[in-house]
Nucleic acid binder design. Structure first.
Lengths: 201, 201, 201, 201
DNA sequence: TATGAATGAGTCTTCATTCAT
DNA sequence: AATGAATGAAGACTCATTCAT
């Protein structure tokens, strides 16, 4: 069913993907209205169902596609994660930044799925080959933390960083037209503070 | 508007509170239907709106009332929190247990509000005099941790404990009729394990 | 679910029943639109679902109610069917006439169910205690046909009569406001012709 | 408009005819979806409308074509119907069998039209030069019934036979791949029973 | 105070038909 | 001739809220 979708013009594909990421992120599965989605994507109501069969099918497609895409990008950019922990976090941020250039709501969407509580929405999310968040854990665990000998758990910093990222995304993305570079700059600043603290533990 | 509510028979008040706590916890603001709520509370549709004006007003009332009530109970039972950290956690658990006897979904409700993403629902939640979760942090920070000298951050244990509590509540409360004592027993057991680990850090 | 319906004012009940009988008869289950039904019944969209839960539930209710009602009326008016066959047919016609005064589309509705081919529509029709058409056969079989000795099968006349009735109903009922007496007069005339023929067989 | 249709390869013509016969027979006019039809016919959506203009035009075409075709075949095979009644029925069955080899749903389609209740569907069915069912009556009335002296009405047997045929077609055709010979065998068996009964009247 | 019938805008989904390629 | 992407009106159904009693 979804194969046909990839025959569309890339620009239209992106419109249809971004509309879903935005509306689902901001409203959750149940409250995300297909009317709002098609308006955002500038397509007709019927077309959404032509390509995805149902709201649930569309949701499932987005999750699957976005999960794969994110992991693919991370994998191809970060071949060797066994570098200094904070260098790795910077590298990840660079990749994320590029992903958000194409799909601004990509991470808020993935985050929103963790909080999803609607039965119908959840039931269609096929466990992807690899869960994005598991993947993050995986590569972060391979980081070299020898320079931060007194740092018991870099995972705590990773988690903290995650919450900071999500919080700032929420603040910035709600308003349209704010460039991703604003986001990146803010996060990089927080990252530097954390790095500094970690060295003094 | 809500003052009239407190003139009702206590038993009816509790039915109306518990119905909301249950349905909002399990379904989120948007997906919680007033039909389901009044059926659960064994009251008529009109009565809910008579006392609370709207679904949003009811939601706001519950949040405000439950927040105050929880903090009141914690405050009056735990006058001096500067005792041994784990003794404090035990005391907290005892208070929570009694709260759940009256309002089983009290903590799942508070937790669900943190995850709430519906605009209308969130917009009516007036910041209470004191946020319950801030209050927890506050008293836990006053605990005496001198016996766990190598324990850098009891907050981590508090957080862990929080997740365990929420998880077990979710498991147990979905089915009706499971006594709160089952819940308390399970948590106390986890608490003891953590205490033991902490001593060996 | 349907009990509440009978607490409504009789006039409103009849409006709601007649609207369904008309629209389902003329369009079949699938093509009968709930919008058209509520407009015909002069009620809101929600009310239909309030009382009957779904289009299918409404359809099932109508079938059940109309079947019972028809048989009840026939039974109470025709205590002893073992009278002269044509006298019996006249008596039946009188009862039907009165039924149609209250529910003009009653028989076209029952007829339309025999032709129904929609899966969803058919699946909800619980076999009633007694099928109306079986009931007709039953009482007609008890008629006294001794005066029409050469008549091998009064059933054929019954069937013929049935087709005539349905055909004339279709002609007359499509236009609103035609009195039932017009229908009755036409049928009675056909009945007399048949009676005459039968005597000469 | 339809003339162009006959320039297509015979095989494609038959696919397009059989798809319509099947889907319309099984679902009725309204519920027969053009999506399902083109999928069954293995043609594109546009092509159906290219040749027939609309769903209604397609429906009308099928009815007209199938009516003419059936009568043509019956006429050319059964030049003299004034033979023994049951011999005639056998001959008819043989012709029908061959028709069903080419168009399995031919008779279920014709039958379904009698039950059609959709306004749009019915409105486009131009009365054909000769109605198939009238034609059946016509030739059956010419049959020689002198051998069945006590048989008042062979039409009753014809009608009975008709219902048996339709019923068995419904049973067999719903599943794909059942050979027409299965159908023919079953009907011939029923026909023999009836013949036997008739002789003993 | 208490009821629940009644409303109608909003939701997801289907489908005949059009049209650029 | 042939495709199938694209449209949008219409359909069944939900639900917070109102109001007569």
């Amino acid at each position: 069913m979804n194969e046909k979708f990839f025959d569309l013009k890339k620009e239209k594909q992106n419109r249809m993907i971004n509309a879903g990421l935005r509306i689902f992120s901001l409203n959750g599965y149940r409250h995300a209205s297909t009317d709002e989605i098609v308006k955002e994507a500038k397509i007709s109501k019927g077309l959404l169902f032509h390509y995805f069969g149902s709201k649930a099918g569309y949701y499932a497609f987005l999750y699957d596609y976005i999960s794969r895409f994110t992991i693919l990008e991370l994998t191809s950019e970060i071949r060797d994660p066994s570098i200094d922990y904070f260098d790795l976090e910077e590298k990840i941020l660079t990749v994320e930044s590029r992903l958000m250039d194409q799909y601004p709501f990509i991470f808020l969407f993935l985050e929103s799925i963790k909080l999803e509580d609607d039965g119908e929405g959840l039931s269609v999310l096929s466990e992807p080959a690899k869960n994005v968040f598991d993947y993050y854990e995986e590569i972060l665990d391979q980081a070299d933390i020898s320079d931060y000998i007194r740092l018991r758990d870099t995972r705590e910093i990773s988690a903290l960083l995650h919450y900071v990222k999500i919080g700032i995304m929420r603040e910035l993305l709600r308003d349209r037209g704010i460039p991703v570079s604003d986001y990146t700059r803010k996060i990089r600043s927080h990252l530097n503070v954390l790095k500094h603290l970690a060295r003094n533990l």
